[in-house]
Lab assay of single mutants.
Amino acid sequence: VDNKFNKEQQNAFYEILHLPNLNEEQRNAFIQSLKDDPSQSANLLAEAKKLNDAQA
């Protein structure tokens, strides 16, 4: 993981990586967004979790 991520951002990265119901395309999009703007990690994680739950 890129060293410019802080602890919260790293946690978001790993959580998104391991959400079971996202397809690869969705997962990659969230990860790319996280890399583009790490400050949005909490929002991105919340969105990813919502999508993950919706696809459960």
Rank of each mutant, 00 (worst) to 15 (best):
V1E: 14
V1C: 10
V1G: 12
D2L: 03
D2P: 02
D2K: 02
D2N: 04
D2G: 05
D2S: 04
N3Q: 09
N3W: 01
K4A: 12
K4R: 08
K4H: 14
K4V: 11
K4E: 14
F5D: 10
F5Q: 05
F5N: 07
F5M: 09
F5K: 04
F5S: 04
F5R: 06
F5H: 11
F5E: 11
N6F: 02
N6D: 11
K7C: 11
K7Q: 10
K7N: 11
K7P: 15
K7M: 05
K7A: 05
K7L: 04
K7I: 08
E8F: 04
E8Q: 03
E8H: 04
E8D: 14
E8A: 03
E8R: 01
E8Y: 02
E8P: 02
Q9E: 06
Q9R: 01
Q9M: 02
Q9P: 01
Q9C: 08
Q9I: 06
Q9T: 07
Q10C: 12
Q10K: 08
Q10N: 04
Q10A: 08
Q10T: 04
Q10Y: 06
Q10M: 13
Q10G: 03
N11R: 15
N11E: 13
N11P: 02
A12T: 07
A12N: 04
A12E: 02
A12I: 10
F13P: 01
F13A: 07
Y14W: 12
Y14D: 05
Y14V: 04
Y14T: 09
E15G: 12
E15R: 15
E15D: 05
E15A: 15
E15I: 12
I16Q: 00
I16E: 00
I16T: 01
L17H: 06
H18R: 15
H18A: 13
H18Y: 07
L19N: 01
L19Y: 05
L19T: 01
L19I: 02
L19H: 02
L19C: 05
L19F: 04
L19K: 01
L19S: 02
L19E: 00
P20Y: 14
P20W: 07
P20T: 11
P20S: 07
P20Q: 08
P20N: 09
P20H: 08
N21V: 03
N21E: 06
N21Y: 12
N21H: 05
N21M: 07
N21Q: 04
L22E: 00
L22Q: 00
L22C: 00
L22I: 11
L22Y: 00
L22M: 04
L22K: 00
L22D: 00
N23C: 12
E24A: 07
E24Q: 10
E24D: 10
E24T: 04
E24L: 09
E24H: 10
E24W: 14
E24K: 11
E25H: 12
E25S: 10
E25P: 08
E25A: 13
E25L: 14
E25Y: 14
Q26I: 07
Q26C: 07
Q26E: 05
R27S: 02
R27T: 04
R27C: 04
R27F: 03
R27H: 03
N28H: 08
N28G: 06
N28K: 12
A29D: 05
A29C: 13
A29Q: 07
A29K: 12
F30K: 01
F30T: 01
F30L: 05
F30C: 02
F30W: 03
F30A: 03
I31T: 13
I31V: 04
I31F: 10
I31S: 03
Q32Y: 15
Q32E: 06
Q32T: 07
Q32W: 15
Q32R: 14
S33C: 10
S33D: 06
S33F: 13
S33H: 13
S33I: 10
S33P: 02
S33T: 13
L34N: 01
L34Q: 03
L34T: 02
L34D: 00
K35L: 10
D36W: 14
D36L: 15
D36E: 07
D36H: 12
D37W: 08
D37G: 08
D37V: 09
D37K: 09
P38V: 05
P38S: 06
P38C: 03
P38Q: 04
S39H: 12
S39T: 08
Q40L: 11
Q40R: 13
Q40N: 06
Q40A: 08
S41M: 09
S41I: 12
A42W: 15
A42R: 10
A42Y: 15
N43E: 11
N43W: 15
N43V: 13
N43I: 14
N43C: 09
L44V: 05
L44Q: 05
L44I: 08
L44E: 01
L44T: 08
L44K: 05
L44G: 01
L45E: 03
L45F: 06
L45K: 05
L45A: 05
L45R: 11
L45N: 02
A46G: 06
A46D: 10
A46Y: 14
A46Q: 11
A46P: 01
E47G: 12
E47I: 15
E47D: 02
E47N: 10
E47T: 13
E47H: 06
A48P: 00
A48V: 03
A48H: 00
A48G: 02
A48K: 00
A48F: 02
K49W: 15
K49S: 09
K49E: 03
K50E: 13
K50R: 11
K50I: 08
K50L: 13
K50Y: 12
L51M: 09
L51A: 11
L51D: 02
L51N: 04
L51S: 05
N52P: 01
N52L: 01
N52G: 03
N52C: 04
D53S: 12
D53H: 14
D53G: 11
D53V: 07
A54N: 11
A54P: 06
A54H: 12
A54L: 12
A54W: 13
Q55G: 11
Q55Y: 14
Q55P: 09
Q55R: 04
Q55I: 13
Q55D: 05
A56V: 09
A56W: 11
A56P: 10
A56M: 13
